[in-house]
């Protein structure tokens, strides 16, 4: 499949920004997730984030918490999400990034996880409760087997943190737009621009912005400041309401 870095390179050449939707794997079922991936790809998604459900999602707001509960109630585990990716790979080459809390990966075995993820075609991993300082093993294996490690920066990040996170991230850098949890209200202020320029000062890696981006308008506003836009809770909410996510993806893709 396509490498994340190449996706950004091509988009940059075309003067476009990456659209990265997030969905919770197994919400409401793994079969549905497979269908949603196809719909998002048809709608113009460039990379898709697949959430792995966890019992204690401390970085997530109510929308994704509930999606996680629904997926867990279906018996969805990291193992099953990996099997789902293998299945999706029969039909699609779109880069898939797993967003998971650290403990399921730790329990699976860090090397075993990275090896299996790469074997079945996962492009990268985002772990919101793992900072680079604690990720020595993961980064080592990810380099060895070829998995992108996407770390996060936030409006509170100091220059020292920016340097550490930028250096450890591959694929792209995830900039959390707000001090808060997923699905909270987006605030466009000067902190975002100043932190983003700080990131750009220390790294030439692509930066995608996520958290609180709930509409095509907001996506358009933040896209101007970065290389990609991540939309999570809004997509998860549409799914829970049985609405058309392909149309939403198109609407976002058109304006970024």
């Amino acid at each position: 499949m396509k490498k994340i870095a190449n996706v950004f390179k091509q988009l940059r050449k075309a003067g476009k920004k990456a659209f990265i939707p997030y969905i919770m794997a197994g919400d409401p079922s793994l079969d549905d997730t497979k269908r949603f991936v196809a719909e998002l790809e048809q709608g113009g998604a460039d990379i898709i984030e697949l959430g792995v459900p966890f019992s204690d999602p401390l970085a997530d707001g109510p929308t994704i918490q509930r999606a996680s509960e629904r997926a867990l109630a279906q018996g969805v585990t990291l193992r099953k999400v990996l099997a789902l990716v293998e299945d999706i790979r029969n039909d699609s080459r779109i880069p898939l990034v797993l967003m998971t809390y650290y403990n399921p990966v730790f329990k699976y075995g860090i090397e075993a996880f990275v090896r299996e993820a790469v074997r079945i075609g996962v492009s990268g991993v985002i772990i919101p409760d793992l900072i680079p300082d604690e990720a020595g093993d993961l980064i080592g294996y990810a380099k060895k087997y070829g998995l992108d490690t996407i770390f996060l920066l936030a409006p509170t990040s100091t220059e020292k943190r920016v340097k550490i996170v930028a250096r450890s991230s591959t694929g792209f850098i995830y900039y959390v737009s707000i001090t808060g949890i997923t699905g909270a209200k987006l605030q466009l202020d000067s902190t975002m621009e100043s932190t983003l320029s700080l990131i750009k000062k220390h790294s030439r890696k692509p930066v995608a912005i996520g958290f609180g981006i709930s509409s095509p308008e907001k996506a358009a506003a933040v896209a101007r400041l970065a290389d990609g836009v991540i939309v999570g809770s809004a997509v998860v909410k549409l799914i829970s309401e049985g609405k058309d996510i392909r149309a939403f993806a198109r609407a976002v893709k058109e304006v970024i």
């Binding site: 401390l58 970085a59 900072i131 300082d133 996060l152 996170v165 959390v176």
Partner: peptide, 10 residues
């Protein structure tokens, strides 16, 4: 160790 979101690190 320190296993929390980056937002809290500072």
């Amino acid at each position: 160790g320190r296993f929390v979101p980056e937002t809290l690190i500072p």
